[in-house]
Nucleic acid binder design. Structure first.
Length: 677
DNA sequence: GTTTCAGCGTTTTTT
DNA sequence: ACGCTGAAAC
C-alpha cells in the first residue's frame, strides 16, 4: 500500500505509537507522507472522524483530504481537517453556550477588528488628543501580537513598537475595552477563535471530552505555529500521546505573526519520548536548483545545516537575470514565460513569486498587454474591497442584529450619515440584541432624505420585503424563512442603490457582488457561511466563481508567503534587490533578516525544473509618482558571489533605452493582433 | 457640529 | 487606488 514511498517516508507514515516529529525538508514529500500516515491510521482501524488534521491554509487542507481520499476511499473524507482557525470556529460554535456566546456569533477579520478599535479610539478621545496616538492598524497589530505570542503588553511594545511605549497605559485601557466591547457585541475576532479553543481544551470537562474525541492529532507546517497554537495542541494531548507534527525549521516564515521555529525544536521537550524522523531526499527539483537553495540556506548563522539531495537527475542551472529596471524585468519575465510555453510548458506549470504583492504591478500590465492570462494570489483580496465589506456587513446583520460594527458601516452608506449620526442611531437602537423593534425611534435621527433608503435595508434585514421587522432578532437558520440564497439576494438588492450612489463605478461593483451572492446560495446556514468566509477568505475573485474550466490556462502570480507548500515546473522570483528582498522594513534585526532569507529559500525551492531570479537595477521609489524618483538598486545581499557563481547570469543589452513615460506608460498601443483573431 | 471632498502619503508578508 | 488629514460646505 505504500509502494510509492521511500524507506524514510514509510517509517514516518507507519510510526506505531507515541508522539512523532517529522522534519521534512522542502520537496521531500511531506504532504505525501502525511496523507500516507492518515491512510495508515485508517488502515489500522482508527475511525476517520477521530483523526484531527490541522493545516496552515484551507488550500492545504483541501489538497490533503483529497489525496487521502484518493488513497483510502471516501471514508477519509470524514477526517476532521482544516486550519487552526476553521477548526476552532467549528468547536467554539459547538460549545458556544458554555463560553457564553450567542448562537449566531460573528467573526471579525483583521479589517473589522481594526475598525472596532478605531471606534473605541475615538470614544476614548484619542482622535482629538494633542499627543499622537497609534493608528487603528497599529493598535490591531499590537493586540494581535500580544495575544498570539502570549506575552505581556510591555514586552511586546518594547520589542516591536518602541515608539508606542509612552502611551502604554491608554493603549492597555483601550485594548481591554476592545475585549469588553466584543463580548457585548457577540462577536469574536480571529485571535479569539484560538483563545476560546484553548480555553475549551483547558477546561476539565470539555477539555477531557475533546482530548477523548480524537485518537490522533496531526499538525502540518509546525514551524509556523505560534505560542497559542502550541498551547492548543498540548492541551488537546494533555491526556493522550498520539500526535504527529510535520515541518521544516528552515521554512519558518511567519515570525511576523508571532510564530517561531523554536516551537518545532521544542516539540521533543513538550512531548517526551517523541520519535524524530527526517526526510531529506528531494523529489521536486533538479540538483542545480538545490545547490543554489542550499547555498542560500548555508548563509544562516544558526542553521541546522541540512543539505537537500536531489532524486531527479539533471536539471538546468538557475538563471540570474539583471534587468535595466522594473519595466525591463516585466519584459524579461514575459519573454521567458512565453518561450517556455512555446516549448510545451503550460502557463499553469509556471509561477511568478514576489516578496510583496505590489512587486508585480508593472508585470501585470505587461501580461495584460501581451494577453497572457494570470491569477494573482496574496495581496489585496476580494474581501477587502469596500463594497464587498458593505455586503458582508448586511449579511452579518441578518443573523446578528447586535453587531454594531456592521451597523456602523451600513448606516454610513446612507447619504448624509457620517460617524456621528451613525453613533447616535446605534445608541438609540440600544446596546442589546434584537433591536430592530426600536427602529422607528432610531430612524428619526437620520436626515429625512436618508430615511426611506434605510427603511429598505431594515425591511430586507427583517426578512420580509416591505414587511414589519421581526419582534426578536432572528437567530440561526429559520426553517420557515427564505433560503440563504434568497436572503443574500434580497440584501444585495436592498443596498444596491446605496452602492450605486456611493461609488463612481457602482455598476461594476454590483456585478462583483454577484459572485458573493451566488456563493452564499450554496450555503445551508448564512451566519455560519459568512463567518467561514472571513476565516478562509477567497484568495481571488476567481475563487468564488468556482473552478475554472480545465482547458483554460493561466499563469500564477503569488507572494512567496501564499506560495508555501506549492510547486511549479518553472518559477520566476521578482525584484531581488536589497531593500525589497530583504524588505527594508524587515532588515532591522538579524532575526528579521534570517526570516527574509528563509523566505527566499522557500521561493527557490518551489521550482521543479527552471528557476529564474530577477534583479532590476533601477527601481521607482514611488510607483505612480510624477517625479522620476528612481533609485539605483543593489542585488539582494542573499545573492552572494557563491550563489551567483551557481547561476547562469544574463545582463541587459546595452542599448540606450527610450525615456520612460512618466504616467501610464504603454497607454498608447499599436495593436494589429485583432486582425488575426 | 457634521459631512464631504481634495490633497497627500503610503503599506510586507496572512489566519 | 486606498485611507487619513485638514479645511470647505452644509
Amino acid at each position: 500500500m505504500f509502494d510509492d514511498l521511500n524507506a524514510e517516508q514509510r517509517a514516518a507514515a507507519t510510526h506505531p505509537g507515541g508522539p512523532l516529529l517529522v522534519l521534512a525538508g522542502a520537496g521531500t514529500g511531506k504532504t505525501t507522507t502525511l496523507c500516507a500516515r492518515v491512510a495508515w491510521l485508517l488502515e489500522e482501524g482508527v475511525p476517520a472522524q477521530r483523526i484531527l488534521l490541522l493545516t496552515f491554509t484551507r488550500r492545504a487542507a483541501r489538497e490533503m483530504l483529497q489525496r487521502a481520499r484518493a488513497r483510502s476511499g471516501p471514508a477519509a473524507g470524514r477526517v476532521v481537517g482544516g486550519t487552526f482557525h476553521s477548526v476552532a470556529h467549528r468547536l467554539v460554535r459547538r460549545h458556544g453556550a458554555a463560553l457564553g456566546l450567542p448562537p449566531g456569533f460573528g467573526v471579525l477579520d483583521a479589517g473589522d477588528a481594526a475598525d472596532l478599535l478605531d471606534l473605541l479610539r475615538s470614544e476614548h478621545g484619542h482622535d482629538a488628543a494633542r499627543t499622537r496616538f497609534p493608528r487603528k492598524a497599529t493598535l490591531w497589530d499590537v493586540y494581535s501580537r500580544t495575544v498570539n505570542a502570549q506575552r505581556p503588553l510591555d514586552e511586546v511594545l518594547a520589542e516591536r513598537f518602541p515608539w508606542c511605549e509612552e502611551q502604554r497605559d491608554p493603549i492597555a485601557a483601550l485594548l481591554k475595552a476592545y475585549g469588553a466591547r466584543k463580548r457585548a457585541l457577540g462577536v469574536l475576532d480571529l485571535d479569539d477563535l484560538l483563545l476560546h479553543w484553548r480555553a475549551l481544551a483547558r477546561d476539565d470537562a470539555v477539555g477531557a471530552a475533546m482530548d477523548d474525541a480524537f485518537d490522533h492529532v496531526l499538525v502540518d507546517e509546525y514551524q509556523d505555529v505560534n505560542g497559542l497554537q502550541v498551547d492548543i495542541v498540548r492541551a488537546l494531548r494533555a491526556r493522550s500521546r498520539e500526535v504527529t507534527a510535520v515541518g521544516d525549521d528552515f521554512q519558518a516564515i511567519y515570525g511576523f505573526r508571532a510564530a517561531s521555529a523554536e516551537h518545532i525544536l521544542a516539540f521533543p521537550r513538550h512531548f517526551p519520548e517523541a520519535a524524530v524522523l527526517k526526510l531529506e531526499r528531494n523529489y521536486r527539483s533538479g540538483q542545480p536548483v538545490l545547490d543554489v537553495s542550499n547555498a542560500v540556506a548555508a548563509q544562516a548563522p544558526r542553521s541546522y545545516r541540512k543539505q537537500l539531495r536531489a532524486d531527479r537527475a539533471g536539471g538546468r542551472r538557475p538563471e540570474l537575470v539583471f534587468c535595466r529596471d522594473e519595466a525591463g524585468q516585466a519584459a524579461e519575465v514575459c519573454d521567458r514565460v512565453l518561450e517556455a510555453r512555446e516549448q510545451g510548458m503550460a502557463l499553469r506549470a509556471q509561477a511568478v513569486l514576489a516578496r510583496t504583492s505590489h512587486d508585480s504591478d508593472l508585470l501585470e500590465l505587461e501580461l495584460a498587454r501581451r494577453r497572457i492570462p494570470f491569477v494573482k494570489y496574496g495581496g489585496l483580496r476580494y474581501l477587502e474591497a469596500a463594497h464587498v465589506k458593505d455586503l458582508v456587513a448586511v449579511l452579518r446583520l441578518a443573523d446578528n442584529p447586535a453587531d454594531d460594527v456592521s451597523w456602523f458601516r451600513v448606516l454610513q452608506l446612507l447619504e448624509g450619515v457620517g460617524p456621528a449620526t451613525a453613533g447616535r442611531v446605534l445608541a438609540a437602537m440600544g446596546t442589546r440584541a434584537g433591536r430592530l423593534p426600536r427602529w422607528p425611534a432610531a430612524r428619526e435621527l437620520l436626515p429625512p432624505s436618508a430615511r426611506e433608503a434605510a427603511d429598505v435595508v431594515v425591511a430586507a434585514l427583517a426578512g420580509s420585503p416591505g414587511g414589519q421587522p421581526a419582534a426578536e432578532g432572528p437567530r440561526g437558520p429559520d426553517p420557515a424563512g427564505p433560503s440563504p440564497g434568497i436572503r443574500a439576494d434580497g440584501l444585495r438588492d436592498a443596498i444596491a442603490p446605496l452602492i450605486r450612489a456611493r461609488y463612481a463605478d457602482g455598476e461594476g461593483r454590483l456585478a462583483d457582488l454577484d459572485h458573493l451572492v451566488a456563493a452564499a446560495a450554496q450555503a445551508p446556514d448564512l451566519a455560519r457561511w459568512v463567518a467561514e468566509l472571513v476565516i478562509d477568505p477567497p484568495q481571488s475573485a476567481q475563487d468564488l466563481a468556482g473552478p475554472p474550466h480545465l482547458d483554460e490556462d493561466w499563469l500564477t502570480l503569488s507572494t512567496v508567503h501564499s506560495a508555501k507548500g506549492l510547486e511549479w515546473e518553472a518559477v520566476h522570483v521578482l525584484a531581488l534587490y536589497d531593500g525589497n528582498f530583504p524588505a527594508c522594513m524587515a532588515a532591522g534585526t538579524s532575526e528579521e533578516v534570517d526570516e527574509e532569507r528563509r523566505l527566499l529559500y522557500v521561493a527557490m525551492t518551489r521550482a521543479r525544473q527552471a528557476l529564474h531570479l530577477y534583479v532590476p537595477l533601477r527601481f521607482h521609489h514611488r510607483p505612480r509618482g510624477r517625479d522620476d524618483a528612481n533609485g539605483v538598486a543593489k542585488a539582494s545581499r542573499f545573492l552572494t558571489e557563491e550563489v551567483q557563481g551557481l547561476c547562469e547570469v544574463a545582463r541587459p543589452a546595452e542599448e540606450v533605452s527610450a525615456p520612460r513615460l512618466p504616467i501610464g506608460g504603454g497607454r498608447i498601443a499599436v495593436e494589429v493582433d485583432a486582425l488575426f483573431d
